[in-house]
Write a protein that binds this DNA or RNA. Sequence first.
DNA 1: GTGAAAGCGCTAACAT
DNA 2: ATGTTAGCGCTTTCAC
Lengths: 355, 355
Amino acid sequence: MKAIALILAPLEYSGQAGRADAEERGLSKPTIYSIAQRCGVSAATVSRVFNRPELVSPRVREQVTAVARELGYLPNPAARGLVTGRAETIGLIVSDITNPFFPLLVRSIQRTAERMGSSVMLVDAEESAAAEVRHVARLRGRVDGVIVASPRSSSAALREAAKGLPCVLLNRPLRDLSSVLCDNTSALFEAGEHLHKHGHRSFALLAGPSASWAAARRSQAIRGWARGRGVELTELGPFRATFKGGRQAGAALLETAATAAFAFDDLTACGVLAELAGRGVAVPGDRSVVGCDDVLLARTVTPSLTTVTAPMDDLGAIAVQVLTRQIEAPGGAPEHHRLPGVFVARDSTGPRSTS
Amino acid sequence: MKAIALILAPLEYSGQAGRADAEERGLSKPTIYSIAQRCGVSAATVSRVFNRPELVSPRVREQVTAVARELGYLPNPAARGLVTGRAETIGLIVSDITNPFFPLLVRSIQRTAERMGSSVMLVDAEESAAAEVRHVARLRGRVDGVIVASPRSSSAALREAAKGLPCVLLNRPLRDLSSVLCDNTSALFEAGEHLHKHGHRSFALLAGPSASWAAARRSQAIRGWARGRGVELTELGPFRATFKGGRQAGAALLETAATAAFAFDDLTACGVLAELAGRGVAVPGDRSVVGCDDVLLARTVTPSLTTVTAPMDDLGAIAVQVLTRQIEAPGGAPEHHRLPGVFVARDSTGPRSTS
DNA sequence: GTGAAAGCGCTAACAT
DNA sequence: ATGTTAGCGCTTTCAC
């Protein structure tokens, strides 16, 4: 009996002996096999130590852990991914990384993803709808799911591109895809009231990119408020969501008699401010300007911007959580979340000019 | 003979027949095996069509391509990576994604990486040296190499973290690791001359974070210039590379008699501008301010910043190229590149105040 | 609690 | 030009 037992317990796992030997001499990277061999256990046991430690006896578990550390073992994600079908990675496509709206969002998404054990693959679409779609195709297979932030693509294109891939849209609603939205409607109402209280009666709406849901939504909110309030509203634009676009918007604003303007976002608002300053128009003395998003810029510009703060951290965190659910239960019903922005008054708004 | 030949040519590849069957009915994802079966060729041939098409006859090549498209085949990166040992992905660690310096850099790196067929895994270290090191460890195995932008970690920590992993440092020199630097020395000399011509004789140096190589380098350049020019230079700081840090720097500046100040970067400079504006100090009337980097902010702020433009596109592109070489020839000698910044005069500098 | 064995989907010799 | 054959490193039944 004893002899037989010995025969049945070979000293090495034949198939891997060569490799293990080589790496014993530091020639190749450690694998579960090298660890297994050094510990006198099977590779399966080593694997369990990392994935289901409760199934392994404490003694073996500790030994394996120790040897793994000593060898500097790192599981090979490709090998693991090949069998599990998971990349432990999510894709993040942003419409324009240079837009100051995104950095904090990226940070929040990344933090949350990391807490969930996933890495983030970031892709900048450079404001191109075509690039967005191309990139989700490219990401497919490399990631478990994607978040598309402020997409510019058509709904049909998005739907098609995301077919069979867990996906959540940020700032863009779409029935069949999950979405997380920042809704500034009520905050913009507050902004309107704030201006109204300061005596403004004639307003300008500097519309953002027509492909942007946020832009449409904001315009709609402002229109709604103006109508309800019975004040005059001149619609200008659409303007690009850039500093330059803002300067154009500023120029256009000066063609009107509006004493207060709603810019599409803070970046545009900064352009407006710059244009007005360049033409010697005082803010808020001559005209009041409100932005949206409350990006870093909003505080740094002079005068600091009255704006609507977007709950970046929550937007990002929720997006990742929803995506995670979507990944774990593919084909589950899409979720729709809507977070309100909050109005914040600063120095770019004030009493209506007396001129 | 004929009979034997038939026996040797089975109709299906036994090992994979079951899967292929299943997926024929649309139950599983297409693989090279499903395509092979439909085309009556071997999986190796299908693989060749994608990797070494010139080795496959045009006829077969076209058929395989057609079927692949029809089935919506997408190669599995994990499987490919497992055998090639390449992830076709590079890691990008930035010290602080909210710093406006990075977006354009990220874009440039990503563009170049994409041209090289690689994706980018972005990680934000949130200004923490520890996080930097942690993240390169985490990235190891998931990426073929990493770019660390403006690292805050100690040289020793970086060296250790990058051991055995292709790595290029951005804005941080280190003998044994490749680096791509933006050197603003001569541009800062020009800035000094520019101010000197405007009559300034007393200067302030608002130093940046002590862990930043760029900060040290810039301070050194300015000191060198001031000494050579024989002008008075007051050193203040270090200040954090944030808007807030800039406001503090601005306050400190006002304690001195300096009529012109070198801020560490544009973000700090904006803080300085805001602080001065808040205290009713005119720029450039009372004091002149120069920034560095030429980020978006530099143009949007009022007055627009006199600064030093960093060649972002080149910095990013070169970093990726160097990294690619490093990946293809591991253990090759580190490369060191140094690109000059270029001075640009705008509205934050002007004649010395006459007061 | 642990091991044997089968594969995940692909590439790369090595044949032919 | 194409097929055969081994794995890449890991997870995961299924036995024991």
